[in-house]
Design a protein around this nucleic acid. Structure first.
Length: 464
RNA sequence: GUCCCCAUCGUCUAGUGGCCUAGGACGGCGGCCUCUCACGCCGCUAACAGGGGUUCAAAUCCCCUUGGGGACGCCA
């Protein structure tokens, strides 16, 4: 069996968005599953709209997702000579011809066809004119006018289009630059690409490209057109649906493995399995399981996946990531060892790293900076409670080691002696040391915070 | 307008003619656990777009309708 070669070919006119990332993932997976190659090509022929920063950001997003590519990156802007070489070849073999029709004239032809209720097309006026090169002339493909071209698609099955539907597309513009369809075919063929997974908005282009493959004598690759990703209103996903750029999700505190898992499940399934590690995906991926209907991107499910991966991650890794989020909030860089002890308490309680950083705040701020929920303080800190808090403070001072078991035992003993319910004091203590009414378990929180911090906070709370 | 694609719970999906009284997951709702908040666990909710065929048998195959999407560039 020949080695499988896939590719991802973004045009650097915007950030890597959800849809693009997903096709990149599918191509990457197909290559990795078969031990083939995954190539990267930047389609920057539109020099006006393309720029290097966008290329950089797309590369960053792919790296974040862990989509490693093989070999050098190909830039279309550096291959114009190659494209022209093949256009000349087509001219030489009679598969292409020069056309002197102006854009206005062509537009008129389209209008005419439209008026007749037909598909707007170029009429083929210069097809047999035997024109040579000249100013303002383009090169067109001499496409077959009869028969049909059928795409044997990996996801859509057999799709047939009448050649009469297609017109003689432009291969070289009047300014001498190659068009997209020509460049893509030359690139994919010369790069040795064997399998192309892309969005189904390209499905209509495929027969056209196949005609170029044929004219050039190139072997055809396999195509697979995956459906688009929709927003909650079932319209094509766009900015108004919220975050569409992959890296916005990093900013919101998503883990790359959650993103990968979430995206791959949009249009691909493997039985009832929901959670897939990168390795499992590589092992299990098959184009057989690609779905053919459009999918709505559901952030709630992505959040669930992210929460799952947060629970699975080693605390040390999360500590580093959370620290970055804390820094973004203007807090100084934290002691990572301390943070790594805080993290496990927060893992079951955060769906994103941003949320985790928020909850970590009360663990890391200076006692003087701790923000108290004053409504809770007012409601809970009765004189009686204040008395108990002071007593508990004294009690805690003597506990050594200051660990969960010891703390729990001591505090419970204190309550039992006085016949008070734990519930009565739990919330006041919580508010005193964390500032709020919701937190991880009281004793584990105390242990992680440490005696000094806990005592200073009770002191400050009593002074409120 | 013409051509192409698509159609299972609110969402992602399983399903490749009998295992379907349609399964799983997210969400929602209810409960259990419990020092708060979560986690976890248990239960409930909810779908084959409609109509015709084919077949002993159809969510699965065919046709039509409807509804969505896409393409028709000297953009990519």
């Amino acid at each position: 069996m020949n080695t499988i070669v896939t590719r991802f070919a973004p045009s650097p006119t915007g950030y890597l968005h959800i849809g693009g990332a997903r096709t990149a993932i599918f191509n990457w997976l197909l290559a990795r599953h078969h031990g083939g190659k995954f190539l990267l090509r930047i389609e920057d022929t539109d020099l006006v709209r393309s720029n290097a920063d966008m290329t950089r950001s797309i590369l960053d997003a792919m790296e974040w997702l862990g989509l490693s590519h093989d070999g050098e990156i190909t830039y279309q802007s550096q291959r114009f000579d190659l494209y022209n070489e093949y256009i000349d070849k087509l001219l030489g073999t009679g598969h292409a011809y020069w056309c002197s029709c102006s854009p206005e004239e062509v537009e008129a032809m389209r209008e005419e066809a439209r008026a007749k209720g037909l598909k707007p097309k170029y009429s083929g006026r210069c097809r047999e004119a035997g024109l040579g090169p000249g100013p303002a002339r383009v090169v067109r493909l001499k496409a077959p006018v009869t028969g049909a071209t059928v795409v044997d698609d990996m996801v859509k099955g057999s799709v047939s289009i009448d050649n009469a539907e297609l017109d003689d597309m432009v291969l070289r513009r009047a300014d001498g630059s190659p068009t997209y369809n020509l460049a893509v075919v030359v690139d994919d063929a010369t790069m040795g690409v064997t399998h192309i997974i892309r969005g189904d908005d390209h499905l209509n282009n495929t027969p056209r490209q196949m005609l170029i493959y044929k004219a050039l004598g190139f072997p055809l690759p396999r195509f697979g057109h995956v459906p688009m990703i929709l927003g909650p209103d079932k319209k094509k996903l766009s900015k108004r649906h919220g975050a569409t750029a992959v890296m916005e999700y990093e900013t919101e505190g998503f883990l790359p493995e959650a993103m990968l898992n979430g995206l791959v499940r949009l249009g691909w399934a493997c039985g009832d399995q929901e959670i897939f590690s990168r390795e499992e995906l590589v092992e299990l991926f098959s184009t057989e399981n690609l779905g053919s209907s459009a999918a709505v991107f559901d952030k709630a499910k992505l959040l669930w996946l992210n929460a799952h991966y947060i629970k699975e991650s080693p605390a040390a890794r999360l500590a580093v990531l959370v620290n970055a989020f804390l820094e973004r909030k203007g807090l100084p860089s934290q002691d990572l060892e301390y943070l790594a002890r805080v993290v496990p308490l927060l893992q079951p309680r955060a769906q994103t790293l941003a949320e985790m950083a928020e909850k970590a705040e009360c663990f890391v701020v200076r006692t003087d900076d701790l923000v108290y929920d004053m409504a809770a303080v007012k409601k809970l800190f009765t004189n009686e409670v204040r008395g108990h808090l002071a007593a508990v403070r004294t009690l805690l001072e003597g506990i050594e080691p200051f660990d969960q078991a010891g703390l729990e035992q001591a505090v419970h003993a204190y309550m039992e002696e006085r016949a008070i319910k734990f519930k009565l004091l739990a919330q006041p203590i919580r508010v005193a040391i964390t500032g709020g009414t919701a937190s991880p378990g009281l004793f584990e929180t105390m242990e992680v915070m440490g005696k000094r911090r806990v005592l200073s906070r009770i002191d400050r709370a009593l002074a409120l």
